[in-house]
Amino acid sequence: MSDVTLHRTIGIGGYGVCLAGIIKRELLKFLNQKERFLSALVRPLIWLFIFAAGFRNTLGVSIIPPYETYVLYEAYVTPGLAVMIQLFAGMQSSLSMVYDREVGSMRVLLTSPFPRWSLLLAKLFAGVIVSVVQVYVFLFIASFWDIDIPPLGYVVALPAFVLSGLMLGSIGLLMSSQIKQLENFASVMNFAIFPMFFASSALYPLWRMREASETLYWICLFNPFTHTVELVRFALYLQFEPTSFVVVVAVTLVTFALSALAYDPGRGMLGRRGGPGE
């Protein structure tokens, strides 16, 4: 093989090739898992069409920003449900990374000569692209309901969805470095997805939560999921929410940095804890 001349680049072009390859693999895998796509879509649609319809009259939403008028409960929950898709996607990809580590494809990824943080970042981006595709399919179906999102809102919200995907994906990545063995999805549901989703502004405005409990209100306010939902909600109605933006960016940077550290061969926990495949 030594006589083969290889045009291998580890330069900027090489990074692009590597990123494109990782994204392509993620998309191909996604296309091959139609059931996963379907269930990712059915979940928020059930919430929207059944749960929200049922609660429509129970939960009145007063006029709060970014809304300029009374909105239907369905309209209120739609941004939260869209971000829920990304929450599930982020957690699912974290579990699939634990699985990948066990079966070994994560190890293959990590033998690439590119710096490890760039590989993790590429994997994160790939996951975000897949989750954003799912979000827009959901929003398309939801648009047939009385949601009333301005057409331009779908475009303006794209960067918000990307940021939100990056944050939730980074949290998933960090979790994947801490989960030693593939546990069942139920525990991730119980300890990550449910608390994050329910203790947030996805299903009810925070002032309502404050009426119920001051402590819960503060928990919701400190929950980063609240801020992804608000960032997306404001963006969908062509507004910018600076606090949420700062929180989402900061949480993304911190959790990604911690994940990169956790996957670092010298400092990470993989070597200390027995690591994958042991």
């Binding site: 291998r8 390859g21 693999r25 293959v108």
Partner: peptide, 22 residues
Amino acid sequence: TLDLDLTVRQNLGYHASLHGMA
């Protein structure tokens, strides 16, 4: 460590990209 649902060529192409080859 191969992706079972991808073709042989897709699997190899993925690995080539991990080394900056396309």
